[in-house]
Amino acid sequence: MTGDDAAKRTSGEDSFDRIAADLRALRDEAGPVSYAELVRRITELRLGRGLSAAAAVPARSTVYNVFQAGRARMDPMLVRDVVRALGADDDAADEWVRRCRSARRASEASARSRGSGPAPAVTSPLPAPVPVRSWHPASVAALLIACVTVNLLGLFTVHVFKLSVYLDMIGTAVAALVLGPWSGVAVAVASNGLGFLTGDPSTIPFTPVNVVGALVWGYGVRRFRLGARLTGFVTLNLAAALACSLVATPIVVAMFHGGDGHTSELAVLSLEATRLPFLVSVFSTNIVTSITDKLLTGFIALGVFAVLHGRWAVPAAHMPLIEKLAPRAEGHPRQLAG
C-alpha cells in the first residue's frame, strides 16, 4: 500500500487505530525509517516553515506514540509532519489531517453516545501514558525484579557501611515513576519482605513506609503532574520525605523505642538530651535523614528513567521532564511496550 493509498482510505468510519496502522505501513515502505531519523526530518521541515529551533524538535517518544494502537487522541499537525517526512506530498498530507479530524469527531460522538462527554482535546499537554497492561509481560517482570534487587542492594550497602541514609527505595521510585504507583507498591512489599537477606532483620515493620513512598512518587507524576519541571520534581521528593517520616516515626517509637539500629539513633539521643519530647526527637532526626535520602533516591530514579526512555523508548508522556533529559539514541530503539 502506497502513501497515497493509505491517505485515501475512506471506506467505513476512520479511527485512530486505523490511522496508526496505516502510518506503520507507510513507515515500513519508506525504509523503514528509524524514529531518530524521523525526528531529524520533522525538525528540518519545521525549521523550513520558520519555527524556532526549540519549537521545531519533537520528542522522540511523541513521534513513536503516533504509530501505536490504543490512542485516545492524535495531533493532526504532527501526523502531517510525519507523513511529509516519510515522503508524502502536500495533498496526501492534507488528506491525513482530514482523516485525523474525522477520527476525532467519531471518537467524540461515540463518547457522547455513551454519556461520558466529549473526548479530551488533542492539545492536552500531558497525553496519557501507555498502560502497563500493553507492555510485554516479560519486560515488566524483569524491570520489577531489577527494582527489588536494587532495593536489597541499597539495604545491604547501608547495613555494611553504616551510612546515614537509607537507600532502600531507589527501586521503588523507579517502578512507581515508570510503571505506576501500584507497581511501586509491589516492589516495596517484596523488597521489605526479603530484607532479612541483607542481614537487616527490621525491614518488614517498615513496609508501610516504602509503600507510602511508592504512592507519593507514582501518583505525584501522574495525578499532580509533578514530573513536568525540575522544581516540581524536587517538591515531589520533599513530599515523599515528609510522608515517609510521618509513617516511620510511630513505627520507630512503638516497635523499636526510638532506636532501630540506624546511625541516626545517635542524633535522637542528642536531641533527647536537650529535653525535647521523645516523639519530636525521633521525627526531627528522621525527617532530616529522609530529606537527604529521598532527594538522592528520586534523582537516581530520574536518571534511570531517562536512560530507559532514551535507549528503549519507554513511554514518558506523564513526565515531560524525562523527555528533556533523555538522550536520543540513533537507530531503532528496543521497546518494552508490547
Rank of each mutant, 00 (worst) to 15 (best):
L78H: 02
G115V: 10
A248S: 13
G310C: 08
R40A: 15
A243W: 08
G87M: 05
T263F: 09
A240P: 00
A141Q: 15
E272W: 05
A72W: 08
G259E: 14
V63K: 11
T123D: 15
F196Q: 04
R114T: 13
T249V: 09
S245R: 04
S202A: 10
M169Q: 08
L276T: 13
G218R: 07
H257G: 14
V282P: 01
I19M: 12
L126Q: 14
K294Y: 07
L167H: 02
F16P: 05
N237Y: 00
K324P: 00
D200K: 02
P58S: 13
L242C: 09
F196G: 02
T43Q: 06
D81P: 06
D200H: 04
I300T: 12
V82Y: 02
L163K: 09
V122K: 06
R46I: 12
V288Q: 00
A141C: 14
F206K: 01
A54S: 12
G310A: 07
N286K: 10
V160S: 10
T157K: 03
M77E: 15
G303E: 07
E37I: 04
A329M: 09
A30Y: 05
N151Q: 11
L336V: 11
L143H: 03
F305T: 03
V234N: 01
A267S: 04
V280F: 10
L179F: 05
A69F: 11
A93E: 06
S110F: 06
L167Q: 02
L143F: 06
G303V: 07
R84N: 05
V79F: 02
E44S: 11
I251S: 01
D200F: 03
P118W: 04
R105P: 02
V160F: 10
G70L: 06
P76S: 14
L279V: 15
L47W: 02
V160P: 01
A141W: 15
I287P: 01
A54D: 13
G218W: 06
M1I: 12
W96G: 00
H159T: 13
V140S: 03
A317R: 12
L236N: 00
T198I: 04
G195R: 01
A228N: 12
A301S: 07
T231P: 01
S191A: 06
D89L: 03
R99D: 02
H318Q: 14
V314Q: 09
A317K: 12
I287Q: 06
D293K: 04
L47F: 04
A239I: 02
V66E: 03
L152R: 03
V57P: 02
R133V: 14
D293I: 04
V130N: 03
E265S: 12
D91E: 13
F206P: 00
A306P: 08
L269C: 06
R104D: 07
A313I: 02
L26R: 08
T274Y: 10
R9T: 13
R27A: 06
E29I: 08
